[in-house]
């Protein structure tokens, strides 16, 4: 049997989730950019009440599609395992990556349930209650970054050890993804400020960090799809493609 069966389909789930996340989490979820922490509780509650129905749809769809972070994490694992097989079958890095993907999935699910709760019946809730719930969602979403950092640093280190003449994943893509997840360290500033570039809706911690993350997501998924294609080719032609 083709050992790479299903892998391509799993890699495609990453692209689907990316598109879905842009539509449901970002646009419908009113997260471009998220509500500023500088808003007063009343201003914030007014915003939520106005957009509650869109946020509800966004989060209701985002929660189930978030599992695809794990399914395409398995596609990454398939590529890493192929590299590890040539390197003495040390599977520590692919394990870290896989567990990191599983945990990151929670980061895409749990905060959405919190924001869904905010949009559930905002007209009868106290503004301050709505605000702390919304803040809680963002604290989890931004500050659990180390789970993703672990996932993609393990990935980067592994693919840099690929001995192929033309590596399955180019070195620049590995370094780029490691850079993006390491740069998440700036998010550490987010719980300490309300406005400015380091706040949850600010220039650096929202616009720059999230754009980088989304670009990295697409770049990585394209190379994972290509790598799986090459692995299938190697499997059927019986030797490493040059």
């Amino acid at each position: 049997m083709n050992p790479y069966r299903y892998a391509k389909a799993l890699a495609w789930t990453g692209v689907f989730m990316l598109a879905g996340t842009i539509i449901f989490w970002a646009i419908l979820g009113q997260n471009v950019p998220p509500y500023s922490a500088e808003l007063s509780a009343d201003e914030f509650a007014a915003q939520i009440r106005e957009h509650a129905s869109l946020i509800r749809i966004g989060m209701i769809v985002q929660m189930p599609i978030s599992v695809m972070w794990f399914t395409w994490g398995v596609a990454i694992w398939v590529v890493m395992r192929a590299i590890e097989k040539e390197n003495g079958s040390n599977s520590i890095l692919s394990l870290l990556q896989l567990v990191g993907a599983a945990f990151t999935t929670i980061v895409f699910v749990l905060p959405c349930s919190v924001w869904l709760a905010v949009a559930y019946r905002p007209e009868v809730m106290e503004p301050k209650t709505l605000q702390i719930m919304y803040d809680f969602g963002w604290m989890f979403f931004d500050m659990a970054y180390s789970l993703t950092t672990m996932q993609l640093v393990a990935f980067g280190i592994c693919v840099l050890q690929d001995k192929r003449e033309r590596p399955l994943i180019p070195a620049w893509a590995a370094w780029f993804s490691m850079f993006v997840v390491v740069s998440f360290a700036v998010l550490t500033m987010m719980p300490l400020v309300f406005g400015g570039p380091f706040s949850r809706s600010g220039l650096i911690n929202y616009f720059v960090e999230f754009s980088l993350f989304f670009v990295m997501w697409l770049v990585l998924d394209i190379f994972i799809l290509k790598a799986i294609g090459r692995l299938e080719q190697e499997h059927y032609t019986g030797h490493a493609s040059r």
Binding site: K163, W175, F176, P197, V208
Partner: peptide, 25 residues
């Protein structure tokens, strides 16, 4: 077989860019 250590230059260039952005901001 293949000298790939200098690929860390890519990380350095990216990291410097993000610090450059912080300086400008």
């Amino acid at each position: 077989p293949r000298e790939r250590a200098p690929a860390i230059w890519i990380f350095i260039a990216l990291d410097c860019s993000s610090f450059g952005l912080f300086f400008v901001v």
